[in-house]
Design a protein around this nucleic acid. Structure first.
Length: 498
RNA sequence: GGGGCGUUAGCUCAGAGGUAGAGCAUUCGGCUUUUAACCGACUGGUCGUAGGUUCGAUCCCUACACGCCCCA
């Protein structure tokens, strides 16, 4: 895929056409203004009969990429594609000024073309513009992929997303839907009086999640910086500051492997509200997703990779320990918090056990290995072990567990929420435990954030928060198998241009 | 990190140890209501890269690159 190889005959032919255009004046004019989009025209005039259109002499100016060109002697049909869709244009020699048609015949599919004329309907009923003016605005030097099969080469779809977007309507739809999802979420939160904020991507102490960060360096200050792995601690600082409801929709960065469900940078919505607990967020998540799916699909049903989920129903709720019981028939529930038994069980099912793992961590290892993938229907898993929830509030009656949930659909974690730990002394001891984990070799352990403890010491009101993985949610609602399908420019190894 | 599959014309794909194939696109000709327009003619290739085996490799082998899928 080198530049040299790219310079083939097809491109050379187009380049020589461009050279002719340059000789004829400005080859890249920017003085045309359209007055209509194809989608609007269809919406407004698809119901009009041909006679009505001809009587009313509706003159429109459109422009877009020429996606179809059917030449028939002295007349042709072309289709121009803009963001809203396509509109057909009839190009006749005798309806255009002298000589224009001859030039038009040399234009290529892919060129950016402007056309003006009156609307009519063809014999087969297609809304069409009879051009009395037509211009080539931008020459396309590179041929587009084949019209029927489109672009199916996955590598090229990801690397040259612009070509994918030109050719594949399904791809355009995914990203339009992604925007609708984020807009819905934002409206939902705004309607509930949440304040949208932006907090730093560059941090001196990365925190808020168990993950490895990307390191960077500030030259002028000669200091190490990290790309954030989560905005959590900063958002809770804002709660301390007195904002009762805040949220942020933005990028997180985690220095981990790439897979169908992981991209090094991904988008997360995090929201915090005071005087609420985790169950309030479960209810709110349920309400938001019901409404979102209905608004997006016109139905509460979601089809995903051969499965169908009803987002109109109440979501299932199960504790971590119940899930272990449900998916491990031979597990002895009498010993669900017995570290030794849990460690033996892990070994039995092939899970790696470290010396510093407590009963809670072992439970989660078992849940991840045996339960997570089985959670197909929308399900809240609750009561995560406190040991693996260093920022969550302990349950008042059962401090082994935290007031925390995760939300799963199709075997994948979509959201994570909890009642926030606002006791600075408890938080300090949790940080110390994390530091111990780091010393024991856990490179995903959190570091001790002194300023965060100081903030909590000023007093953080009782609060609950949630994080929703936007990319995975978009995957689910657009029936996309890979996270790369919902990222405009997914991470790829560099291409060589030798 | 391990395993499997893939990489052939601009695109979508066949193919076989012995001169490289189709459709679409391009180029040329024809056609004033097409809908993957149609009809005729032509053109288009370092078969991912580098080695090896062989009289001969695009095909077999090895390594590498990139991608996809699965596993950790």
């Amino acid at each position: 895929m080198t530049n040299k190889k790219d310079e083939n005959k097809l491109i050379a032919e187009r380049r020589s056409k461009l050279d002719l255009m340059r000789e004829g004046g400005n080859a890249y004019p920017n003085d045309f203004r359209r007055d209509s989009l194809s989608g609007q025209l269809h919406q407004t005039f698809d119901a009009y009969k041909d006679e009505t259109l001809r009587e009313e002499h509706i003159r429109v100016a459109v422009s877009g990429r020429m996606m179809v060109k059917r030449l028939m002697g002295k007349a042709s049909f072309i289709k121009l594609q803009d963001q809203s869709g396509q509109i057909q244009v009839r190009v006749e020699r005798d309806s255009l000024p002298e000589g224009i048609y001859q030039r038009f015949k040399k234009w290529d599919v892919g060129d950016i073309v402007a056309a003006q004329g009156e609307l009519f309907r063809t014999q087969t009923g297609e809304l069409t513009i009879l051009a009395d003016e037509i211009r080539l605005l931008t020459k396309s030097l590179r041929p587009l992929p084949e019209k029927w099969h489109g672009l199916s080469d996955q590598e090229m779809r990801y690397r040259q997303r612009y070509v994918d977007l030109i050719i594949n309507e399904s791809s355009r739809n995914v990203f339009q839907k992604r925007s609708q999802i984020v807009t819905y979420m934002r409206s939902f939160l705004e309607a509930a009086d949440f304040l949208e904020v932006e907090t730093p991507m560059l941090q001196t102490t990365p925190g808020g999640a168990n993950a490895r960060p990307f390191k960077s360096h500030h030259n002028a200050l000669d200091m190490e910086l990290y790309l954030r792995i989560a905005p959590e601690l900063n958002l809770k600082r804002l709660i301390v500051g007195g904002f009762d409801r805040v949220y942020e929709i933005n990028r997180n960065f985690r220095n981990e492997g790439v897979s169908t469900q992981h991209n090094p940078e991904f988008t997360m919505m995090e929201a915090y509200r005071t005087y609420a607990e985790y169950t309030d967020w479960m209810d709110m998540t349920e309400t938001m997703l019901h409404g979102m799916v209905d608004a997006l699909n016109g139905s509460t049903l979601v089809s995903y990779q051969g499965e169908e989920f009803d987002f109109g129903k109440k979501f299932m709720r199960m504790t971590v320990e119940e899930a272990i019981e449900a998916y491990n028939p031979e597990f002895d529930m009498a010993r669900i918090r017995d570290r030794e038994y849990l460690a033996d069980y892990c070994v039995k099912i092939g899970v790696n056990v470290q010396d510093n793992y407590g009963a809670g961590k072992l439970q989660i290892e078992i849940f991840d290995a045996t339960g997570e993938a089985e959670l197909r229907e929308p399900t809240f898993i609750t009561q995560y072990p406190t040991e693996v929830s260093p920022l969550s509030r302990k349950n008042d009656d059962d401090p082994f567990t935290a007031d925390r949930f995760e939300f799963f659909v199709a075997g994948r974690e979509i959201a994570n929420g909890f009642s926030e730990l606002n006791d600075p002394e408890d938080q300090a001891s949790r940080f110390r435990a994390q530091v111990e984990n780091a010393k024991a070799g856990d490179d995903e352990a959190m570091s001790y954030d002194h300023d965060y403890i100081r903030a909590l010491e000023y007093g953080m009101p009782p609060t609950a928060g949630i994080g929703i993985g936007i990319d995975r949610l978009v995957m689910l609602l657009t029936n996309s198998a890979s996270i790369r399908d919902v990222l405009l420019f997914p991470h790829m190894r560099p291409e060589s241009f030798d």
